[in-house]
Design a protein around this nucleic acid. Structure first.
Lengths: 188, 188
DNA sequence: TTGCGTTCGGGACAAATGTCCTTTCTCTTT
DNA sequence: AAAGAGAAAGGACATTTGTCCCGAACGCAA
């Protein structure tokens, strides 16, 4: 649910401190509620989260939202779009105040081509996201809201993340009305 | 829906023909209906499809099935499990007769650590799968079966793949009864 | 040709979820 | 303190989907 990545953060911080040209990686801040990346727009930077939490979500044409993941410290953003050379797949929005390392695209491209360390970090991240996204897609399609909610609440208590009801509903792909109904039936 | 990857196939075929030790990559065949990989079991090889089509699916504890993707020529199998060192996430089953290149795990691991070309091929594949899986998860959660079926039929006609009703239902994460109902209403 | 078993499609009803609207609660402004 | 606006929860009804079971069609063997 909430993903973090300490080794990726260390790797980028080491690059940040040792870079000769100081513009390849800069620090940026976003306040809660701000969009870091906008769906269907070309990303200008690849970013890695230094602190804070973001949600990564689709807005569909019927105006409904689906949260794919919550991304925290050490998680990378915008890298899929760079590798596939496409506009942003999803929106990324800060749900707390967030600080990131913003990495220039030509610099990041060059690293992907040449750094095995970066490649291996990215492969691990991608593998993790495929596992998480596909297994949750399967589960939420084949079980009722009650089962999915139980799983989410269990994860949530382990990770100590505070989510609004609207965000919980968007993560499960349902309406807030349905979420309230199921929570009431389960006496939550 | 059906994924293929010509450049990955060329890369593996070049390795296959030039390998000194002939056991690192071997060819294997599977008849229609056979399982190439079994969910929750440790994979013994990483495989790349030379010809044929497979389905990659979850079997949930409530005995329902969800097809994540159909994988064809040039697509790689079992690599996620190797990178994350986990048992198989899904089942992989041949829906036509299938031939694969089976790659020894220590050999493949060594290539991942050392070959930038392989890393870049894998990054592209993973990026594609994340895009596909997450966007379809969102769509199928937020729209009705009718919309999802329309999308599938459109893809299917472009790709000339023949699917059983049971497989279509499993790809959409619904029952065959529901699929029949919607197909009848749409006069298909 | 007939009988049996399996597969497929659909009827009927139940369950799950969405939509729309109302009521209550909370917060802010006057 | 009161009023107004916005947010949150839930009632009622509609729609969508799942479950169960039955009948028809098909294939195979005797």
């Amino acid at each position: 649910m909430l993903r973090t990545n300490e080794s990726f953060l260390q790797y980028i911080e080491q690059l940040y401190h040792s870079q000769p040209r100081k513009e390849d990686i800069i620090e940026r801040s976003f306040t809660k509620g701000k969009k870091l990346l906008v769906q269907n727009e070309k990303p200008s930077k690849v970013m890695l989260i230094k602190s804070g939490i973001t949600k990564c979500f689709f807005t569909e044409e019927n105006d409904k939202a689906f949260i794919v993941e919550f991304l925290g410290k050490g998680e990378i953003l915008g890298e899929i779009e760079l590798i596939r050379n496409i506009p942003c797949l999803c929106n990324i929005e800060a749900i707390t105040d967030v600080e990131v390392y913003a990495i220039a695209i030509p610099y990041f491209s060059e690293l992907v081509r040449s750094s095995l360390e970066l490649n291996n970090l990215l492969l691990s991240v991608f593998a993790e996201r495929i596992v998480n996204t596909s297994s949750r897609a399967s589960y939420q399609q084949l079980y009722t809201i009650e089962n999915s909610l139980s799983k989410l609440l269990e994860l949530q208590s382990k990770q100590e993340i505070e989510l609004s009801k609207e965000d919980i509903a968007a993560y499960l792909g349902i309406t807030v009305r349905s979420l309230n109904r199921v929570m009431k039936e389960k006496h939550i």
